[in-house]
Design a binder for these strands. Structure first.
Length: 135
DNA sequence: GCCAACGTTGGC
DNA sequence: GCCAACGTTGGC
C-alpha cells in the first residue's frame, strides 16, 4: 500500500468534479517522472488530492480503482492514465503554507519538486497531513 | 500578470 | 553530448 499526491487545477478538474463522477480518469500527464509514478500505482492506493494554482491546498482523498492503461487523450500509448474513486473531502483543507511551515513535511516532493504532478507520499507525511486536516 | 524552476527541443 | 532557446507549471 502506497500513498500518493496528485495535483489538479480546479478549472481543469476539481475534487467536486470527481465527487460528482464518483470515478474519474486521471489522464493528460505528459511528464516522464509523473508517468512513471502513475505506473507504480496499485489498486487500493490512496491519493491526496491537491488543488494547485488557485488557493493551493490538499483538499481531499481518492483511491486508485484501476491501474495504468494507455491514456485515451494521447496517440502515444507510452502515456498512461489511471482511474480514481472519490473517497472524501478533508474536514479542513491543508494549505500549501501549512505544509511549508510544518517541520515534519519539509522533505515532501511537493516542496522539493514543485512541478511534479504525481508524487509518492510517505506514511508519516500522509498521517501528518490528515492530522492537520482534523485541527 | 510576473517570474522562478525546470523540462523539452533542436542546432551544432 | 552540450547548451541555448523556448515552453509549461505553479506560487505569489
Amino acid at each position: 500500500m502506497q500513498y500518493w499526491l496528485i495535483k489538479s487545477e480546479p478549472e481543469t478538474y476539481s475534487l467536486e468534479d470527481l465527487k460528482k463522477e464518483k470515478i474519474g480518469r486521471w489522464d493528460g500527464v505528459r511528464n516522464y517522472t509523473a508517468r512513471n509514478n502513475l505506473r507504480l500505482m496499485r489498486t487500493g492506493d490512496l491519493c491526496l488530492f491537491y488543488r494547485s494554482v488557485t488557493q493551493p491546498a490538499v483538499v481531499g482523498l481518492c483511491k486508485v480503482v484501476k491501474e495504468h492503461y494507455p491514456d485515451p487523450t494521447s496517440d502515444n500509448p507510452a502515456w498512461v492514465a489511471v482511474d480514481v474513486e472519490f473517497h472524501s473531502a478533508l474536514k479542513k483543507e491543508v494549505p500549501l503554507k501549512a505544509i511549508k511551515d510544518n517541520p515534519n513535511l519539509q522533505e515532501m516532493a511537493l516542496l522539493k519538486q514543485s512541478r511534479l504532478s504525481v508524487q509518492p507520499v510517505s506514511v508519516a507525511e500522509f498521517d501528518e497531513i490528515l492530522n492537520l486536516s482534523e485541527k
